[in-house]
């Protein structure tokens, strides 16, 4: 990315990917599975923010809500309605899981936009686990709820018999690609925006183009706030769609 500039000109230093490096907060820097890292820190901050909004914000239980309670209720209603509309009434049972996913992703995305923060959702390790959790859960649920009828998801009865095997292969491939696209979409969006902001910030070292650079950062930042919400929304709504497929596999 920034190779040439690095060697020739010392004032222009691009390290757009450094922000994504997990580092150990204490100790000698080796990262074991249990080491407290910046990943731990920012996930803890995410949990704290969720508790602050959804638990502390709603503590008044007021009939006429306070600002914090309104936002908490808005978020609740938003996800609840999404589950109800997309996945159906019988998917309401799984609403807490989906709410967990959504609140984690949306808060991690937004907190990642704070300067000097670490964006946990920009890592394929994180989004991959999230997507695999959804994939496994939905697949197991599909077989538990529908038994072998779940395979009707791949056997499209509305198509002519001759093309059904072909469609079944395509459907099967698309089904297994789901967790891949599901996770890479989120991590890629998060990583790309943050890296672009960092690159623009690197240009700010040159006085002549620093105003343009700052303008560009501002514009990108606005866009990234939008992306942070939209990607959390997309991840959640896709989860709902997969959930619907698991509950009602027939096309």
């Amino acid at each position: 990315m920034a190779t040439e500039a690095h060697g020739s000109e010392s004032s222009l230093a691009f390290h757009p990917m450094d922000q994504f490096k997990p580092v150990s907060l204490f100790g000698d820097g080796t990262i074991h599975w249990y080491t407290v890292t910046n990943v731990t820190l920012w996930m803890a901050i995410t949990v704290l923010a969720i508790v602050l909004l959804l638990v502390v914000g709603s503590r008044g239980r007021a009939m006429v809500p306070s600002k914090g309670q309104s936002i908490a209720e808005l978020m609740y209603g938003f996800v609840y309605k999404m589950v109800e509309d997309v996945a159906g009434k019988d998917a309401i049972r799984y609403f807490p899981y989906i709410m967990t996913l959504f609140s984690f992703i949306v808060f991690a995305n937004i907190l990642g936009l704070l300067p000097l923060s670490f964006t946990t959702t920009s890592h394929i390790a994180v989004t991959g686990v999230l997507a695999l959790l959804v994939f496994t859960f939905v697949t197991v649920l599909g077989f538990v709820k529908n038994g072998s009828k779940f395979l009707a998801l791949f056997w499209i009865s509305s198509a002519p018999l001759a093309v059904r095997p072909l469609l079944a292969v395509i459907e099967l491939i698309s089904y297994f690609v789901r967790p891949v696209s599901h996770s890479i979409r989120l991590a890629g969006n998060m990583m790309a925006g943050h890296a672009v902001i960092k690159v623009f910030a690197g240009f700010a070292a040159i006085a002549a183009i620093s105003p343009v650079s700052i303008l560009a950062i501002t514009a990108m930042y606005g866009l990234e706030i939008l992306v942070a919400f939209i990607q959390a929304y997309v991840f959640t709504i896709l989860t709902c769609v997969y959930l619907k497929d698991a509950l009602h596999p027939a096309h």
């Binding site: 997990p22 990262i31 074991h32 599975w33 249990y34 080491t35 890292t37 990943v39 731990t40 996930m43 803890a44 995410t46 949990v47 969720i50 508790v51 959804l54 638990v55 709603s58 908490a72 609740y76 609403f95 807490p96 899981y97 709410m99 967990t100 609140s103 984690f104 946990t120 890592h123 390790a125 994180v126 686990v129 999230l130 959790l133």
Partner: peptide
């Protein structure tokens, strides 16, 4: 490391949400 802390985070969020907030 990331996966471990992610799972811890998700479990904590799930319990906070399903026991208190929701």
């Amino acid at each position: 490391n990331q996966i471990f802390w992610l799972l811890v985070t998700l479990v904590v969020i799930y319990f906070v949400l399903s026991k208190i907030a929701l």
